[in-house]
Design a protein around this nucleic acid. Structure first.
Lengths: 205, 205
DNA sequence: TGGAAAACATGACGCTCGGCATGTAAGTTC
DNA sequence: GAACTTACATGCCGAGCGTCATGTTTTCCA
């Protein structure tokens, strides 16, 4: 009946900590940043307000930790899928698909919530910027490994264009824009990217 | 010393109404949606809470009105600048610049705040969707008039790709990404768009 | 095995929010 | 110019927020 699990202190700590961070992400996705309250978070995590008080001195610190937790998850997700990509033109198209998948999932939804909130919250902004930049650079590195024949600055251009386009599309998806149109746009962009890729590899300056 | 202005009721009404809506937009831009409170709004508008109570039954209604007010402003801004564009390839590049200017200004910042908030607020979402769709279609119409030689579905593709890319870049700008990189990406995209434009007009299928 | 310390629960405090009831001033109508 | 409607101001209320002070349980260590 009762729990007889003997957990070490470190285990207890880590367990409720990740539970809180996961609950925070869930909250961001479900109800948005504005209505993500401490009580809502610890209600989802199944702990009391005292717990979050014990682990994080203030709500801002919780959010900062959530940012890092979130980025780590996203980074892992992108890295594992990007590493098993074919090279060449088909690899470019596949990479775009993966970037779209990564930047349109629930994790990125939470990131967007935090991003927009961070615009007017210097503290949160300071917490987000470095981890986000690190995520971007790490992902870029994986991508450039895939498209190795391309001049580096060309690959970087294609990458950032794809990322920003994808983020715009993700925003469109959030409000319920036409999914079919997004599909068409993504297909079109893949065609363009492959075309540019072939041009650049065929006639290197 | 004292105000001797004799305003008609309609004038008074319209005046404080637009003052409230403008103040709402200011609030969204300055402090974000989460901290855009009624008292903050009417403090900036120079009126009391009773005023907003009189004009709008609830805060949601104020926000809905702000959405329309905002969209009207954006629409006007885009329309006037898009109408005096040259045709041909230089026109395409200029149009992209204008779209970027439109979607990266303060007005669009406010729109983004509302958008993200609307994701988890069905009421706000219902208010935003129609006006945003109308804005998109109206802008598209102006753009297709500029690039008249292009097949319509081609022009539409280029337009939506530009819009979504621009929105992604605007998000990047909000968090303080590298402005120089954004400039480079925009230049690159203009080159690509002009290239695609020339291909499509030179060899129509 | 008992006491220290860490992990968590509970309850209360001050604050701000949105909404409402009520009062006052400005404009309209006859 | 007096009754009436509209436009706005003032003050209050209950609810929810983040934070803190203080108990209670669980693990650790000697």
């Amino acid at each position: 009946m009762t729990e007889t699990t003997h957990r070490t202190q470190a285990q207890r700590r880590e367990q409720t900590r990740t539970a809180l961070l996961d609950a925070t992400i869930d909250c961001l996705v479900d109800v948005g940043y504005a209505r993500t309250s401490v009580q809502e978070i610890c209600a989802r995590a199944g702990v009391s307000k005292g717990a979050v008080q014990h682990h994080f001195t203030a709500k801002a610190e919780l959010m900062a930790a959530a940012v890092e937790h979130l980025t780590t998850k996203l980074r892992l997700q992108l890295a594992t899928s990007l590493d098993e990509l074919p090279g060449g033109g088909t690899g470019v198209a596949a990479a775009i698909d993966l970037l779209w998948a990564g930047y349109s999932g629930t994790l990125s939804t939470a990131v967007t919530e935090l991003w927009v909130a961070a615009r007017t919250d210097p503290e949160l902004r300071a917490a987000i910027r470095p981890v986000d930049r690190a995520l971007g650079r790490a992902t870029l590195e994986h991508v450039t490994q895939v498209a190795g024949e391309l001049p580096p600055e060309r690959a970087e251009m294609l990458f950032w264009l794809t990322v920003n386009l994808t983020r715009g599309l993700a925003l469109d998806a959030e409000l319920g824009g036409d999914p079919n149109r997004r599909r068409l746009l993504l297909e079109e962009w893949k065609r363009i990217a492959v075309l540019l890729y072939q041009d650049a590899t065929a006639a290197p300056s």
